[in-house]
Nucleic acid binder design. Structure first.
Length: 913
RNA sequence: GGGCAGUUAGCUCAGCGGAAGAGCACUUCCCUUACAAGGAAGGGGUCACAGGUUCGAGCCCUGUACUGCCCACCA
């Protein structure tokens, strides 16, 4: 550990070493411990199909920051890792593999196919978990869960049975969102609506002659539709009951074009008379609104599209067997040919797509299992409303509430094979058994839900039971995650559940707020009688530099693994953290990693410099901290550090990780490195061994503090540097790994505002000299002299006392301080902060250039005088603004006046010369 | 159609009631023994627009315009 540090920070040699070390020392695992407060986080389980993308990296980094922060604060943190089986998505992946072999899942059969699925999951399912290790995540790997493992599966079955027995789960033939490609039903929320410019076709439905044609003004009624193919299943035409145009047609019959079926004109208030023609074709089997109308008017439901998206036999010749879009085309042609197509208008409208494969969703009638959500939603809303679940940022509470409020029953059955099979069993002889085939039912036994496969029918004792073929929506198991990972439904002796539940915070992106977060709240309340998490921290979505969502298909993804490879994991983490304003999406480009990488290198080199010098000192037996006496810059940097610690702690406590990152960056680079290290060099290079120790002590103390503040964000580099500080005894008190060191605590009362003000004044002088140097092209290395006039005696004395700071930083050979020293000939000038500064530059100075510069300054001063005067002359300002503001303004004016006078005097003298 | 964000330097974003900030990019100078992945200095902004509140407004209020996202059964 005592070896010299390399000249640049090389993440590749460091990261693996420390992660292994953390694992070896078992510092991430957590056990219930009544003497410590728990802090629990469950990871949003990534799909087993996944490889780590930027969204995962951001999400995991945010959680790791919080968890590491809490660990250092002395909590007993538990962060549970795991993966989601990812139902449809994962099955699609394996089906694609099969397809490449020229096979379908049906060729294999359910059992063989599932074997194949498990094989795949065993081979590839842990990839993303390995990648989370690479990211440095402090997850308790001994608790790794998978939604389809034994623990989680038991919870899923138990939850289903409980809900079933409570009467909240029911089966029914409903209109559901069907994906013809994935061949399964989807929940409402799994349908993605996309605005598309479609067509609105106006079609003529001819009225049936009743022998009293003259009674009608019109011979036909025009309906408007975006989906003409569904007309084959029309069983009515609906108009609004108060629509004068159609009032007298209600009750009459029209002839369905192409088919010739006679259907009634009905009145329903669901119709908006102002849209289209005000007359709507009603297809109860293929449209949710029409379905409802159909229920109200007892209309037939004619199913004309099948589960593959093809027209059924019921659609009639010549359409039967055609794909739905081909049928649409043909129908339009046929209507056109019969002069029944009156108008084709462009019509932007939202079209539903499958969230897994983007196929256009087809509303179809089918038998599905539903979960009644009304009561659960009500309780969830209550929790959000009364703050039992608190959102960060809280602007997400309202959308969450309104989603819960408008929630309809959840379709939980899926017609795929990969997932938790629905634990419902039918008596084989029952009329209810959907899998009876040609068998003649002999009983009416109701199906039962059961954790174990029942040996016989609980109703008739029949020995043959058939399990439902469907599996549960993958989000059903996800919804149980916060307690299923801890072994629910085991409650009695479940120490984990007692200790760790409810979890402390859930960290996630807003794209799965409803899909997942809201449902966990519902399920947590239902089964645990307590919210699953107290806080929800919502971070943004990672976008590319053009603001587009990163996706493989767009080809704009930045691979986090590549970034880690190229810039280091800490650079990736810092970069993500810095841009992660709560709730706001972030645009990421390659540049941001570069600056984070540079920051890491800066930390590295500052540390290298300090350690190099620390080692060159003979400390005696121990490394002694805080050796007296301290001087101004020590008080200053300690004060700035104390401010920093307070601000970073507040930021992390309120999930403002971005602010924490920026605060540390700013302090470390612009204060600690740019000023303090430079000033400390005076003592480090000096001959006074005691002073040298003081400077190095403070440098080390603050470095150790900053490393700890930074550790949650940049775990690897901080640990590596920490290890290089191994021989310093203060470290022993703070733990063998920085991950278990204590979070810095400071006494805010010790913040020395005078020291801060004084340093600011000195910095201003240094900057002024440097500016003059730069403007007059004086090389940085060339020693020059300066003369300062200061009117205030205490400031003068302060500068005298710290002249060395100024001389060292501004590279001044001599510095003369006085109150009314004359302007040296051929000198450049600066006025400000109560001082007048001259830099004699005989032979170097360009007097014309200097005059121009001073004139500009003079004009600025004049403008300032005007501004301040105007403000002070405003009676309302003096009367209403706080006294401190008025005083500040007066001081500003006074300074500007002095500045202006000094500049003008000098300018006059220069003119006269 | 509803809702929620955003609009500040060329780019990415901080600041959210009392003198316009950072990083990157740009210009000039510097390989000064921590760091050229660096140092010093500099140029660049009527803080989207219009009203209002206030002694005072990027900052609060009300509209408007764009941009993005979420929700929604106008066929």
């Amino acid at each position: 550990m005592n070896k010299e540090m390399d000249k640049t920070y090389d993440p590749s040699v460091v990261e693996q070493k420390w992660y292994d070390s953390w694992l070896k020392n078992d510092i991430f695992s957590s056990h219930p411990d009544s003497t410590r407060r728990p802090f629990t986080v469950v990871i949003p389980p990534p799909n087993v199909t996944g490889s780590l993308h930027m969204g995962h990296a951001l999400n995991a980094t945010m959680q790791d920051i919080i968890v590491r922060f809490k660990r250092m604060q002395g909590f007993n943190p538990l962060w549970v890792p795991g993966t989601d089986h990812g139902g449809i998505a994962t099955q699609n992946v394996v089906e694609k593999l099969l397809k490449a072999e020229g096979k379908s899942r049906h060729d294999l059969g359910r059992e063989k196919f599932l074997e194949r699925m498990w094989q795949w999951r065993t081979e590839s399912g842990d990839t993303i978990l390995m990648q989370l290790r690479r990211l440095g995540c402090s997850l308790d790997w001994s608790r790794t869960r998978f939604t389809m493992d034994e623990t989680c599966s038991r919870a899923v079955t138990a939850a289903f049975v409980k809900l079933f027995e409570k009467g909240l789960i029911y089966r029914g033939k409903r209109l559901v969102n069907w994906c013809p490609r994935c061949h399964t039903a989807l929940a409402d929320i799994e349908v993605e609506h996309e605005e598309e410019v479609g067509k609105l076709w106006h079609i003529k439905y001819v009225l049936k002659s009743r022998g009293l044609i003259s009674l009608f003004k019109k011979k036909y009624i025009v309906v408007a539709t975006t989906r003409p193919e569904t007309m084959l299943g029309d069983t009515a035409v609906a108009v609004h009951p108060d629509d004068k145009r159609y009032k007298d047609l209600i009750g009459s019959m029209v002839v369905l074009p192409l088919i010739g079926r006679e259907i009634p004109v009905i009145a329903d208030t669901a119709i908006d008379p102002s849209f289209g023609t005000g007359a709507v074709k009603v297809t109860p089997a293929h449209d949710p609104v029409d379905f409802e109308i159909g229920v109200r008017h007892q209309l037939d439901r004619i199913e004309v599209i099948d589960f593959h998206g093809k027209m059924t036999a019921a659609a009639g010749e010549p359409y039967a067997g055609l794909d739905r879009f081909a049928a649409r085309k043909k129908i339009l042609n046929d209507l056109e040919a019969q002069k029944l197509l009156l108008e084709t208008a462009n019509h932007p409208h939202a079209v539903g797509h499958c969230y897994r494969c983007a196929t256009v969703i087809e509303p179809l009638l089918s038998e599905q299992w539903f979960l009644k959500v009304e009561d659960m939603s009500r309780r969830a809303m209550q929790s959000v409303a009364d703050g039992a679940v608190k959102f960060y940022p809280d602007s997400w509470a309202k959308p969450c509430l309104s989603w819960l409020e408008n929630l309809r029953d959840w379709c939980i059955s899926r017609q795929i094979w990969w997932g938790h099979r629905i634990p419902v069993y039918y008596c084989a002889s029952s009329s209810i058994n959907p899998y009876a085939g040609t068998r003649t039912p002999t009983t009416d036994c109701a199906p039962c839900a059961s954790v174990e496969s029942p040996a016989k029918c609980p109703h008739c004792g029949g020995a043959e039971m058939v399990q439902d073929a469907d599996v549960l929506d993958t989000w059903f198991s996800s919804a149980l995650w916060p307690f299923s990972v801890m072994g629910w439904p085991e409650i009695a002796d479940n120490a984990d559940l007692k200790y760790y539940y409810p979890t402390s915070v859930l960290v996630t992106g807003h794209e799965i707020l409803y899909l997942w977060v809201a449902r966990m709240v519902q399920m947590g309340l239902e089964f645990m009688d307590a919210v699953p998490f107290k806080h929800v921290y919502i971070h943004g979505i990672v976008r590319d530099k053009f603001g587009k969502k990163m996706s493989k298909s767009l080809g704009n993804v930045i691979d986090p693994l590549g970034v880690m490879e190229k810039y280091g994991t800490d650079a990736l983490r810092f970069s993500l953290t810095q841009s992660a304003a709560p709730g706001r999406d972030m645009q990421l480009s390659e540049d941001s990693f570069l600056s984070a990488r540079n920051f890491a290198n800066k930390i590295w080199n500052a540390s290298r410099f300090i350690m190099m010098n620390v080692r060159s000192v003979d400390w005696g037996k121990d490394f002694i901290m805080a050796v007296w006496p301290l001087e101004l810059c020590d008080h200053w940097i300690l004060s700035e550090y104390r401010i920093l610690v307070g601000e970073v702690t507040v930021a992390l406590d309120s999930y403002n990780m971005d602010a924490a990152a920026r605060l540390i960056y700013e302090f470390f680079w612009s204060k600690y490195c740019d000023w303090y290290i430079e000033l400390a060099k005076i003592r480090i290079a000096g001959t006074d061994a005691e002073k040298r120790k003081v400077a190095l002590s403070i440098l080390t103390e603050i470095l150790a503090g900053v490393l700890r503040l930074l550790h949650p964000i940049m775990p690897f580099i901080t640990e590596e540097i920490w290890s290089h500080m191994a021989e310093l005894d203060f470290r022993a008190k703070k733990g063998p790994t920085i991950a278990l060191s204590s979070w810095p605590e400071v006494n805010p009362e010790k913040i020395d505002t005078t020291a801060i003000a004084r340093m600011r004044a000195l910095q201003e002088i240094v900057t002024a000299v440097r500016t003059i140097r730069s403007e007059m092209n004086v090389p940085p290395g060339k020693l020059i002299t300066a003369v300062i006039n200061v009117s205030a005696p205490e400031t003068r004395e302060m500068i005298e006392q710290h002249r060395q700071y100024v001389q060292y930083l501004a590279k001044l050979e001599t510095l003369t301080v006085g109150s009314a020293l004359p302007r040296p000939p051929q000198s450049a000038m600066f006025v400000g902060g109560g001082i007048e500064l001259f830099v004699p530059l005989a032979g170097i100075i360009d007097l014309e250039k200097e005059k121009t510069r001073l004139k500009k300054e003079s004009a600025n001063a004049a403008a300032e005088i005007e501004r301040c005067t105007a403000k002070l002359n405003n009676a309302d300002f003096s009367a209403r603004a706080p006294a401190s503001e008025v005083a500040k303004m007066k001081a500003r004016l006074a300074e500007a006046v002095v500045k202006s006078n000094n500049l003008d005097t000098t300018l006059k003298a220069m003119e006269g010369r």
